[in-house]
Design a protein around this nucleic acid. Sequence first.
DNA 1: CAGTTCAATGACAACGTCGACAAATATTGT
DNA 2: ACAATATTTGTCGACGTTGTCATTGAACTG
Lengths: 339, 339
Amino acid sequence: MVSIISVAKAAGVSNKTVSRVINGEPHVTEETRERVEKAIRDLGYVPNMAARQIRSSRSNTFGIITDYVSTTPYSVDIVRGIQDWANANGKTILIANTVGSSEREATIWKMFQSHRIDGVLYVTMYRRIVDPAAGDVSIPTVMVNCRPQTAEDWPSIEPDDFQGAQDLTRHLLERGHRKIGYIRLNPILLGAELRLDAVRQTAREFGLADSDLSIRLGMEGPVGAEENYVFAAATEILQQRDRPTAIMSGNDEMAIQIYIAAMALGFRIPQDISIVGFDDFRTVSMALKPQLTTAALPYYDLGLQGAEWLNRVVAGDKIRPSRRVLACNLIERDSVCSV
Amino acid sequence: MVSIISVAKAAGVSNKTVSRVINGEPHVTEETRERVEKAIRDLGYVPNMAARQIRSSRSNTFGIITDYVSTTPYSVDIVRGIQDWANANGKTILIANTVGSSEREATIWKMFQSHRIDGVLYVTMYRRIVDPAAGDVSIPTVMVNCRPQTAEDWPSIEPDDFQGAQDLTRHLLERGHRKIGYIRLNPILLGAELRLDAVRQTAREFGLADSDLSIRLGMEGPVGAEENYVFAAATEILQQRDRPTAIMSGNDEMAIQIYIAAMALGFRIPQDISIVGFDDFRTVSMALKPQLTTAALPYYDLGLQGAEWLNRVVAGDKIRPSRRVLACNLIERDSVCSV
DNA sequence: CAGTTCAATGACAACGTCGACAAATATTGT
DNA sequence: ACAATATTTGTCGACGTTGTCATTGAACTG
């Protein structure tokens, strides 16, 4: 393999001078610099990161620990956000999945240590509370889409489920809906309760009585193997005497079944029944007909800002606000109309 | 940082002996081994990969180049397959996205070189023909879900779209369907033509005339910004005088609109119209009601076997069959019935 | 013109690990 | 008991890079 020494020989200088050129250090004549650069090009030299790391004891690498990847496919945008930041800032990224196994998680932390990772982004694919095994390993960590169980061990960055559900509810209320159905997310998800609270509170603010809200559980059970009641719940809500004019869905995926239930009963969307989702899981929200009005989870920005934050933590910044929250933007499409 | 030397001091042996213990080499007394292992535990020593790599000039790292990640969310299973293999075999994985930019791709190859990557998995998220810029860089490469433009530069591993569509068509034909609608995938996708050919050929084998097939284009245009005709096409097919009793969808996502079109016209699925998808994109195929019968793209295995293959290539195996193909399994659910 | 400063370059060591080889110790055969 | 062999342990250098310090020579100062 071509090393700094071969380049030095080819350019007729010392290896240290080549090093200076590579790192853009001063004190090199323009003429020397050009000769070295030519040699680098001719030989196709590329610096060896491992050697650099050994020398400098900094790896310029961040690690990502995720739980599952496929549960909500669009959440991979978190990873994309991190990668984009890393790419723009010359960092390398190492990714590993725990697959829910804490044994595996321990292995991953070891692996990260052996690569002398500078910092870790602890990412979950659905929002929840976790207990990272980072305790015995002192690598700076930022939690993304999740939150540590124990106090404020590490900073965290999360989506604002409450505000997102609030916006969606307001959106419906402002369009005159006074009877609203809500099919809840799996209650083991952290967002579920926040969204429900937001719906209830906002409805109250607009003067609705509790009886104006038809709240049903759409799913429950362990992630990946949940019981699904969405179709039945939607059908039941829609057959009520004084039926709602709008149904809010715990997420976009569940909205598919609400669409089908509504259509099976002969309702037109949105003329007879308005529907909103949550997540802006585009493969669904844009494939539905009419396209689904929903609140977008800020996955990409969660990743991007998480990485940037981690970088500051690694650099030694003592950052104050230990929990940060990112807004869920309302995406208006065609599944809602005024009454 | 705690190094092999600190361990050696703590255990009262030479660093070489520690090295022997770490790597499980023979010629170490049980008693010495235990003393060293204790020192390792006490000090929390973890071997430094960078140093190892420098010493051995092998990084034990594979790189993954992908194009886009989010277009077909389940295709990230390819990456999961690769990671699982890597994890089981003690390899490290570096991932980077080209985002379609060839400039970016060049940067990535440089990055891979600077990490002295042992091999590269060139992965695309939908099946297509590509022209990797690996030419000027001689790193062993295996193509996953795609195929090189120029001859047989590198081995490739791909899903068997033809066989998948064939199985689906047979499935319908064997259940008595004699008029079949087919809403095609975006023709710029490599799978589109193969699937169409399979449908045509299989129908002919069962004695159907060309007029028994209603073939329509469901989408066209650049990936991520395509025109969508699915709803209109499905509606049109279903309103024909002598309408088909089954509709095949280019993929699962498009099947959502076929469901909705059918229901809007008052058809029941599957009693009045059978529907099949392709891909087994579970967020859709299992969310639909009734659940969708489809053919599963072998994403996970594509990744797993691709990694294993790459490993053999890196090890110097001269592997013969330069293109490998993995079956798409028929997943029977509830959207088809006999006529 | 001697003395000083400064820019350009180089020599060398060290980072953590392991392979090649050498040394020390234990075991065996006669 | 002594050589011959086998087992266990240690010394040293090299991998590619960069930080520290030294050297060279030219430009400036008075």
